[in-house]
Design a protein around this nucleic acid. Structure first.
Lengths: 155, 155
DNA sequence: TTTGTTGCAAAACGTTTGCAGCCTC
DNA sequence: GAGGCTGCAAACGTTTTGCAACAAA
């Protein structure tokens, strides 16, 4: 999906959320959301703050807006399990798509994949006392590059 | 598994890691690891720092040790996707067990489950350029309690 | 003896808060 | 016109850093 299309969709979601919760529509919120859509994904607070400041939008407003987008479930945050300092990264999840990543525990490389079969298994199964909507799946392992390096005994 | 057993196993992993990396065995590291095993899971830095200080182990050492345990893959960190402030929580993962949680997006309740079928689907499938070892799965949805509240029109 | 580790205090960092002024409704 | 929102700066809490003393190998 094109970035402009994503923006059009999530802007609709934001508008709906703002209206439903009797909040106010502001240009700053639109701009921050646009920047989130344009940025490489996943993005950090820093990235958006930096871009926003070029448009004279303050740090506080970016934080406020991202909070709002989290509440509206328009973005969500990812984390890296094997790191201590926790600088969150964010992603647009305008339609609650299921989300899956392959993470190399050697070098930290991350790549996305489509968990088609897993999707059925996870969402269709019955849970006692729980109705699933969507999921995030992080598969840890070793990427080809690291595997090759071990074979060559390079550290 | 009993907490003492867990400690015995992970202490072995720590020893192996320390030896393999030409680091030093210290009583402080053992103590911190023991505290991590004894604490309710998941635990926060605070919890361990507080417990450690009763044994005259400093804040820095706890941070150092948790970092080490992260690198050694003895603990990993969890986060909540829909919250901005990110105060990491940690868990012992001594054997790289697959890890699955049901998270209610309304009230934030978290419960563990055994992803048996998903396990086969996720670990057994072929990935291009990637060898999977283990995974973390977070299923978002609505818990029974929140569902019931909606039915009764209580907010 | 070498050098990794600890413990303290200070610094750095990311995020939140308080408040005056502005702007949406 | 009421009150939510923005922007600034100061405050806050958590994590990292620098360094001297210590202790494992």
């Amino acid at each position: 999906m094109k970035k402009e299309d994503t923006y059009t969709i999530v802007k609709g979601v934001l508008d709906a959320y703002v209206t439903a919760n009797h909040l106010r529509h502001t240009v700053e919120r639109e701009h921050v959301l646009r920047l989130c859509c344009q940025a490489d994904t996943p993005f950090s607070m820093d990235t958006i703050v930096e871009l926003a400041q070029k448009e004279f939008i303050s740090r506080s407003t970016v934080y406020n807006t991202i909070q709002l987008l989290l509440k509206a479930k328009i973005v969500h945050s990812l984390n890296k399990q094997y790191e201590s300092r926790c600088k969150p990264q964010y992603e647009i999840v305008y339609n609650h798509n299921n989300h899956a990543q392959l993470i190399c525990t050697k070098c930290g490389r991350v790549s996305e994949f489509k968990p088609k079969i897993a999707e059925n298994v996870i969402i269709s199964r019955k849970y006692s006392n729980f109705t699933p909507h969507h999921f995030s799946l992080y598969v840890y392992g070793e990427c080809k590059i690291c595997r090759r390096l071990v074979g060559k005994n390079i550290k």
